[in-house]
Structures are given as structure tokens and as C-alpha cells.
């Protein structure tokens, strides 16, 4: 089993930044962990500014309650995010 299994288990409920071996960055709150995947729920991303047409809704990750799985075997790095990051 991946060494990240126990790391993720220990940090359920915490915001993390995971980089996978393909270079992708996943930021989210750990909601669940099974033998193969860690499941994240989105956290608000950085505001990249700009001026719009009037339509805007605050980002809450990929919609509240939406989570996605990251294969434990694909994790290259995992860092805990401090609260001010999200």
C-alpha cells in the first residue's frame, strides 16, 4: 500500500496540496481515503482578478460538495496548506 495512505488518513479534514507524477496540482480538503485513492473536496482557488461583464459567483472549489479522487500511487508530493491559503 502507498506510503501516502497513512499520511492521508491522518489528515482527513485538512486542506492539502498534492502534486501527482504527471505534474498536476490538486488542492482540496481530504474527505475520505481508501486503499487506492484519496478523495478531495474543492477549496476556493486564488482570485486572478480582471474586470467582467457583471456576472460573477464566488468559487468554492468545483462546486460545494463536489469531490474527486486522486490515485495514491500517482502522488509525488503532498503538503498541508495553512488556513490562510484557503
Amino acid at each position: 500500500m502507498s506510503r501516502y495512505h497513512s499520511v492521508c488518513k491522518r489528515h482527513v479534514g485538512r486542506a492539502v496540496k498534492i502534486t501527482t507524477v504527471d505534474g498536476r496540482v490538486h488542492r482540496g480538503i481530504i474527505r475520505n481515503v481508501n486503499n487506492t485513492h484519496v478523495f478531495l473536496e474543492g477549496v476556493p482557488a486564488r482570485n486572478l482578478g480582471g474586470y467582467g461583464y457583471g456576472y460573477y459567483r464566488r468559487p468554492y472549489g468545483y462546486r460545494p460538495g463536489f469531490g474527486w479522487g486522486v490515485a495514491l500511487g500517482s502522488i509525488a508530493t503532498l503538503a498541508l496548506l495553512p488556513f490562510f491559503w484557503w
Binding site: 498536476r24 496540482v25 490538486h26 488542492r27 474543492g42 476556493p44 482557488a45 486564488r46 482570485n47 486572478l48 480582471g50 467582467g52 461583464y53 456576472y55 460573477y56 459567483r57 464566488r58 468559487p59 472549489g61 468545483y62
Partner: peptide, 18 residues
């Protein structure tokens, strides 16, 4: 076209703008 951001941040930002 952006500085110092990742694709996830861009994605979220564009989604929030429609």
C-alpha cells in the same frame, strides 16, 4: 498567458466568471 498560477486556479477563475 498568466504568471505564477496553475491550471486549476485558471479553471476555477474562469468558471466563476461564466
Amino acid at each position: 498567458y498568466f504568471n505564477d498560477v496553475n491550471a486549476y486556479d485558471i479553471h476555477q477563475h474562469l468558471l466563476s466568471h461564466g
